[in-house]
Structure formats: structure tokens, C-alpha cells
Amino acid sequence: MTATSIAAPRSPRRMRSRTNTELYAWLFMRISGVLLLVLVFGHLFVNLMVGEGINALDFAFVAGKWASPFWQIWDLLMLWLAMIHGTNGLRTIINDYAERDMLRMWLKVGLYTATAITIVLGTLVIFTFDPCPAEAAAHLLPSFCPAP
């Protein structure tokens, strides 16, 4: 560059293709938020308030719930929506506070890795779960398991 050039006012800092990704992310936060309100409050109510409450939580309790496709789908939806909602929220926060390009990039790599692991692990657990594992002591299992 020989002469100092001054960019026209309001010209974008970087030329890139214009997309609506941020708009969709914004909309997703709101739609998932409304769904999560129902899913999370239902989850807390059934696990903490009904019956014996938190003291009833054990393997048999979880097995009893996931024996039903209703709770499998409920928990699956909650897992995916909460993880994507939370990850997108953290992405915003990283963008807000991490000013160095490299730092910002690595924080997001770490975030997306943790998210992917959590979603895959959680999904596998919900669907490969066996409520009556053969080698387990019978008194730890839900009552509907066949006697050994």
C-alpha cells in the first residue's frame, strides 16, 4: 500500500458471506428455553418432590423411569436441548470476554469437545441402558426385573 486508504463508513471489517446463523442461534435460545422450562421443571418435580423425593434416588429409581419410552424421550430431549442451549450461551460469553483470537478459538474447541462428549455419552446411556443387568444383586434392581 502506498497511500493510506480510509475505508468507507459502515463497511464490514471482513468480507464474508452473509448468513443468518446468529439470528437462528438467537431464535433457538428462545424456543429451546420455553421447552426446557417444561422439561426441566417436570424432571425436578418427579425426581425431587414426588414420593420419597431425593432420598428415593438410586439405580432402581432410574431403571424404573427408563423402562418407559416416555421418560427416555423426555430425558433425551432435555439432554440435547439443554446442552445445545448451554453451549450456545457459553459461546456468546466466550465471544464477549475472550479478546485474543487464539484464546477464543481454543476455548471454543474445548467447549465443543466437552459438549460432543456429553451429548454422545448421555444418548448412549439412555438407549443402551439395561434395567435388569444379569450379574447385579437383586435387591438393587427395580421390582419388575425377573427373579434370577
Binding site: 439405580f59 432402581a60 432410574v62 431403571a63 443402551t128 441402558f129 443387568p133 447385579a136 444383586a137 434392581l141
Partner: peptide, 10 residues
């Protein structure tokens, strides 16, 4: 922690 249901009830 919930993934531990896949390890064993114990």
C-alpha cells in the same frame, strides 16, 4: 454421574 448406571447398580 448418571452415566454410572451403565457401569453397575453398585
Amino acid at each position: 454421574d448418571t452415566a454410572l448406571v451403565r457401569v453397575s447398580p453398585e
